[in-house]
């Protein structure tokens, strides 16, 4: 019985996959040539890389909401404080891991800044830079060089919400000038860089927060 049900599921999944492949080949050519339009408008965007131009300029609204979603995800996680059993005492770590971490983390910081800067004209940008920063924080935490975040101090709150606030402030300011997130062509480049710097810091903190916002092990043992 179970085998028949399994076979039926496999068969219907296979049929669905085939149907998807067939329909993909039968799709009509897109009526709007988006890549071409992006290329045409690229000089007005303030950056030279089409992906960054779409993310931060042409579809800046989407990115704004995306950042809000990430912040909400972290807030949701913080709202439901999970009971977390105290971690077992770690065996003394060998010196290689902390040593390598101390060597790698500054390089990761440098890589993040490079990715942020490179976003203007080649693959890179705020999200990638933030992910590298967050990875550095996780690495530091895993080697006991950075304790878990146990409380939300004002500085941390500002850092977490800052990117979104800067983005919204710029959007609101531009609303007075014309439309939401329609950058003036002359200042588009610097505005995008400004937003991206704020986003990198905030997103880095948010992504790291998903890992680091845990009740301190020592706190729980007391």
């Amino acid at each position: 019985m179970k085998r028949i049900a399994g076979a039926a599921v496999m068969l219907s999944a296979g049929i669905l996959a085939m149907a998807l492949v067939v329909s993909m080949f039968e799709l009509p050519p897109p009526a709007v040539r988006l890549p071409q339009m992006v290329q045409e408008k690229l000089p007005q965007s303030g950056v030279e890389h089409p992906v960054t131009a779409v993310l931060l300029n042409f579809r800046g609204y989407d990115t704004l909401l995306e950042v809000a979603v990430l912040l909400l995800a972290l807030l949701g996680m913080l709202a439901g404080e999970r009971p977390r059993p105290a971690a077992p005492d770690r065996a003394p770590t060998d010196p290689v891991l902390p040593g390598l971490t101390r060597f790698l983390v500054p390089l990761m910081g440098l890589t993040a800044v490079y990715l942020l800067w490179a976003g203007a004209h080649r693959p890179g940008g705020a999200f990638q830079a933030a992910a590298v920063l967050a990875a550095a924080a996780v690495l530091l935490h895993l080697t006991d060089l950075l304790p878990a975040w146990t409380s939300l101090r004002l500085r941390l709150r500002t850092g977490l919400a800052g990117g979104l606030l800067v983005f919204i402030t710029v959007a609101a300011w531009l609303l007075g000038e014309g439309r939401l997130l329609q950058y003036p062509v002359a200042h588009a480049g610097s505005l995008i860089l400004f937003i991206e710097v704020a986003l990198t810091i905030s997103l880095g903190l948010i992504l790291a927060g998903l890992f680091l916002f845990l009740p301190d092990d020592d706190e729980r043992r007391r």
């Binding site: 890179g124 990638q128 992910a131």
Partner: peptide, 28 residues
């Protein structure tokens, strides 16, 4: 390459670390 960077950093790196952490918590 943009998506590749994001996938490597977030999809494999951070999600993997979170899953491993969850696994450790479950075991403890």
């Amino acid at each position: 390459p943009d998506i590749a960077l994001a996938e490597a950093a977030i999809g494999a790196g951070l999600t993997g670390a979170l899953l491993l952490d969850g696994l450790g918590t479950l075991r403890t």
